[in-house]
Nucleic acid binder design. Structure first.
Length: 336
DNA sequence: CTAGTCGCCTGTTCGC
DNA sequence: TGCGAACAGGCGACTA
């Protein structure tokens, strides 16, 4: 359920609090969260320990941290994190040494630092950074274990628009490197090199319904069930309309709707239904208040209400999950 | 190549 | 009150 805005909120939090910190130790509480790290948990711990967190990047719902070797050079593999359905990355700053004047507050701070979240799966103990003299813990917490962490080699992924200019094969800038495991993910709508024309071409080549295509991360990334429903509502499109039947204008409007909804949610700190979806400090976003479609079965369509009409939103089964739409604004395609 | 299905996971809610 | 079923659903692996 963390989609692009939620993952970007987490990425920005890591960038603000944890970069340049060395990894002092790694504790794997549940090896299932490392399922995608094929060499296993022992290798995972050994590979991270001693390296320092360097940069925080994201594509769609994938997040990755580049690493520095002890000599300061860029490591050839990155720490990839996917939050899956219920994953969180939490930053906990180590309290300063207890002072005699305030020992009571200090012990509370220590207890809060030491307390382990219920579904803690992996804990990285980090050292001081250039900006902070105290240590820190970076906790990967995941109730359902659909998410996970793993190391993946960095490979070049230079956008076509840039390739013509000077990017020599030997020295590809860090921002044009991507973990091999993330290379199949399309650039997302908030990416400066997002390519709407490429998306349109993919729409025209498939017989699938538009919502299925919106959820295909190799076509357009960062969109999950919530924001797909929101974007389709804004664009007044039915989820089953074949992607190849969208006109150029409908495609343009839909991509604009996707971009807008992702931007607005990001500005609100993401969508949260409970304490499961939070930033690195454990705080929830409040975009849920702005939802027009997702989770609103039986409630009036906001747009119809605006027009003085009452249409009740409906929930329909879709690909083993749920789809929400307005039966008036988002009519089913004629043929099938 | 594309499209469809399955398995992975736990916590909450609901019907009987 | 107890218990199984349904549901939340992203994504890689696999099959046709």
């Amino acid at each position: 359920m963390p989609e692009l805005p939620e993952v970007e909120t987490v990425r920005a939090g890591i960038a603000d609090h944890s970069l340049s910190r060395p990894v002092r130790s790694v504790r794997v509480v549940d090896a299932r969260s490392l399922r995608r790290h094929l060499p296993g948990p022992v290798d995972f711990e050994a590979a991270l320990t001693g390296r320092a967190l360097r940069g925080a990047y994201r594509r769609g719902k994938y997040l990755w941290l580049t690493l520095s070797e002890t000599d300061g050079t860029l490591a050839d593999e990155a720490l990839v994190v996917h939050l899956g359905m219920s994953g969180q990355l939490l930053v906990r700053d180590e309290p300063r040494e207890a002072s005699e004047s305030d020992s009571c507050n200090d012990s509370e701070a220590r207890a809060a630092f030491d307390a382990e979240p219920r579904h803690l799966r992996v804990a990285l103990e980090l050292g001081p950074s250039r900006a902070s003299s105290t240590g820190q813990k970076l906790l990967f917490v995941d109730q359902r274990i659909f998410g996970g962490m793993f190391l993946s080699p960095l490979v070049p992924d230079v956008p076509a628009a840039v390739a013509r200019n000077e990017v020599t094969p030997g020295e590809v800038p860090e921002r044009f490197l991507v973990p091999e495991a993330v290379k199949h993910i399309a650039r997302d709508p908030l990416d400066e090199f997002f390519d709407p024309a490429a998306v349109r071409r993919k729409f025209l080549r498939t017989s699938s319904g538009i919502k299925k295509v919106l959820l295909d991360q190799s076509v357009i990334s960062g969109v999950g069930n919530i924001y797909a429903d929101e974007a389709l509502w804004r664009a007044r499109l039915h989820y089953a309309k074949p992607a190849r039947t969208l006109s150029a204008a409908q495609t343009r409007d839909l991509l604009a709707a996707v971009t807008d909804v992702l931007r607005e949610s990001l500005a609100a700190g993401g969508t949260s239904f409970d304490a499961l979806y939070v930033n690195v400090l454990g705080e929830s976003g409040y975009f849920e208040r702005s939802l027009n479609a997702y989770g609103r079965a039986g409630e009036p369509c906001h747009r119809c209400a605006e027009a003085g009409r009452t249409s009740l939103m409906v929930r329909e089964p879709f690909q083993n999950r749920s789809s929400y739409r307005c039966p008036h604004c988002q009519r089913a395609p004629r043929s099938r």
